[in-house]
Every structure is written in structure tokens, then in C-alpha cells.
Design a protein around this nucleic acid. Structure first.
Lengths: 197, 197
DNA sequence: GTCTATACCAGGATAGAC
DNA sequence: GTCTATCCTGGTATAGAC
């Protein structure tokens, strides 16, 4: 019955592969078409522009990231909640490794191409950051929230740089570190606001 | 006396500006030339290719980053040493904000263009990471080292995202967090070397 | 040391035939 | 759904005037 979209899917896969190892801007539609076994013009039948192709490639990650924020905002903020959310973040990055890497390593090329979605992307990240920072956060707490998100990204780079360490250990270590940084706010590190025992 | 290299410098500046806000691949030599007030062909007199121009733009940061590693490897690894090195990292990122952002946000486009330098860049980062991880590091210690470097990057994003917080506070908070993560190895957090049972 | 002019090729995009 | 042909822009290159 449905081979419907079969070509479309193959295009998406090859596009992702080429985007990630040539960079979005440099990856050529001709080469994508070649790999799929069709011509450039045929590609344009399935996707009206290079940007549309990119959006199709990137959508799954965005959707899941959005779900995480929804989950976060619907729940409390006990240590267990924080742990669950952070874990979902890392898991999602690892599950969509290739696309996530595109965002991390190719943001300058990709974000302008995602112009229609950019407002939503920025807002989603801001909401996640704000949730992590907690209610009525100090400037320090907000900086820590940004730092924690950045820290989680290393789930991707760590796997690539240190090739003999298993994903599972990376995930555990990063979650631990992230919680450590966040917890610093609650358990009173120096100069947070004077003193809090 | 010497206006020698004046045009060259102006080209470098405008190139950096355009690279950072269009992305390296999309930034056109024609537009750079326009801004400088010369023609594309004149540009080619000063820089034999777009890549050479990029290298010229990027060199100062690389040199300074290299110096940090040299400093690190020449010194001990007391908390004070670690603090000094981390501080130099953050300061360098902030001092070369624009170029550093190029590396962070445009890596996919830039690294291939820096092919001749790439071996050195990777090696420098690996040495910094290894120094941070300490002698005979466990897998966890190495992951933490990667995470800490990633965390310091947020000096750049934090400034951009949270616009009302001063650089100085960002710097202090990130250094604190970085040291916290590194120190976790020494002061014994749970399950450092995996679960036995 | 800087410029004009000109040309080549690759890549994104479109029109129209089958 | 796929093709051929065509257009425009951009990086690269060269020859030559001032």
C-alpha cells in the first residue's frame, strides 16, 4: 500500500547525513540527489527549498524538546523532578545525536534557515532555562541554569572526543555534575547572597 | 609613516563582523569588499583565498589558547593553579568574544576551512582537557574535564541570553561551578567508579 | 598596492516537457 | 515523480591599467 513518502524519507536521511558532515551551507542539493539516485530538480518536487528540507530533518528533535518543557512546567521542582527533566534532556540529545550536533556545531548556518521556527526555539529554551533556575531566581541562579544546559551538551562532544567511554557512563556523570551545579544554589556556596546555612 | 597593512586590518575587521553574523559559508567576499570600500579583486590581492582570510581572523585566539596550555603544562595542579588556568580560559573567551563565538556557533563551516590548523587545534584542546582531568584520570574524571570546558563556553552564551547580568558575575559564577565539578572527583561523590554489584 | 574587466565553475532555484 | 534546460549568485583566477 504505502510507498507514499518513501522517497521523501530517503531524501531526509541522506540530507541529514550530508548536512552533518559537510555543514548545512556547504552541503549541496546535487550531492544529496545523487545519493538518493534522483536529480536536483526531482528533489525540488519533494521539498520546495533547501530550507524546507532542513526543517523536515530537524523537526523531530524540536518536537521532543518541546515535550520536555511541557513536562517540566506541568510538574513540581523536587530533586526527583529536576533529575527526571535533566535525564530527559540528555536522553533526547543522545537519541537525536546527529540533529543535535547540527544545532551545536552549525548554528550559524542553520538558525537563519530556521527563521520561521526561531522564535519558538528561543522561547522553548528560555522556558527550560527559567524552570531550571527556579522561582524568583537570583542572577547567579540564572547563570547556573544556562551553564547546566551547556554542560549537558557535552553528552555529544564527550562521546566523540573520548571514544572508549560508554554512553551510559557519560550520561550518569553529566547528570551528577549538572545536579551538583544546580544544588550549589540551595546548599549554600559562598557569596550567593551573604549566608544561608 | 606606515599605513602598511592598514587595508589588511580593515579587511580583517569587516570580515570578522560579517562572518559572525552571516556565518562563514554564507558571508560573501563581495560584501566584505563593499564594506571596506574596495573590490573583490583587490581583496584577493591581500588574501589569496577566503580561507586565508579566515585564518588571519582566527589566529589571535588560537595563539592565546595555545599559551594557556603551555602555562598549564609548565605549572603544578594545585587548586590555585587550576583556578588560574580556568580563569585565563574564561578571560580569553571573553576578550575574543567574536572569534570565540565563530568557533562555537559555526564550527561545521569553519573547521574544514581551517584544515591546515585543525590537527594543532584538536591537540591543543586535548592537552588542556587532559591537564584538567589530572594525572592517570578515571573515565569519569575525563568526562568531567570535557564537561568543564563546555561549561566555560557558556560565558559567551550567558552574556547574550541574560542581558542584564554583568560579565564579572558571569565569570565568577562559572569559575565557581567549574571548580565544583572538578572538585567532585577529589572529595568523593557517590559511584565514582561504577556500581560493583 | 590598488583597481577594472572578464571569465569559469558550482550551487540554489525555476519553467516546462514527459 | 522525474527529467532537461536555464538563470543568478558567489568563490576563484588572470591580465593589465594606474
Amino acid at each position: 500500500m504505502d510507498m507514499v513518502g518513501a522517497t521523501r524519507d530517503r531524501i531526509r536521511e541522506h540530507a541529514l547525513a550530508l548536512f552533518t558532515d559537510r555543514g548545512y551551507a556547504t552541503a549541496s542539493l546535487r550531492e544529496i540527489a545523487d545519493r538518493v539516485g534522483i536529480t536536483k530538480a526531482s528533489l525540488y518536487y519533494h521539498f520546495p527549498s533547501k530550507q524546507d528540507l532542513l526543517v523536515a530533518v530537524v523537526q523531530p528533535l524540536l518536537t521532543q524538546w518541546h515535550d520536555i518543557v511541557t513536562d517540566a512546567e506541568a510538574s513540581g521542582r523536587t530533586p526527583a523532578d529536576v533529575h527526571r527533566i535533566l535525564r530527559r534532556c540528555v536522553d533526547t540529545l543522545l537519541a537525536h545525536r546527529a540533529v543535535a550536533n547540527l544545532f551545536l556545531r552549525d548554528a550559524a548556518a542553520i538558525l537563519p534557515a530556521l527563521a520561521p521556527l526561531i522564535a519558538d526555539i528561543v522561547e522553548t529554551n528560555a522556558r527550560l532555562r527559567d524552570w531550571l533556575a527556579g522561582p524568583a531566581p537570583s542572577a547567579v541562579a540564572r547563570i547556573r541554569a544556562v551553564a547546566v544546559l551547556e554542560l549537558l551538551r557535552s553528552a555529544l562532544t564527550a562521546g566523540a572526543t573520548l571514544d572508549d567511554v560508554p554512553d551510559e557512563l557519560v550520561r550518569r556523570t553529566l547528570l551528577e555534575s549538572a545536579e551538583l551545579v544546580l544544588a550549589a544554589g540551595r546548599s549554600g556556596t559562598p557569596d550567593q547572597r551573604g549566608h544561608a546555612a
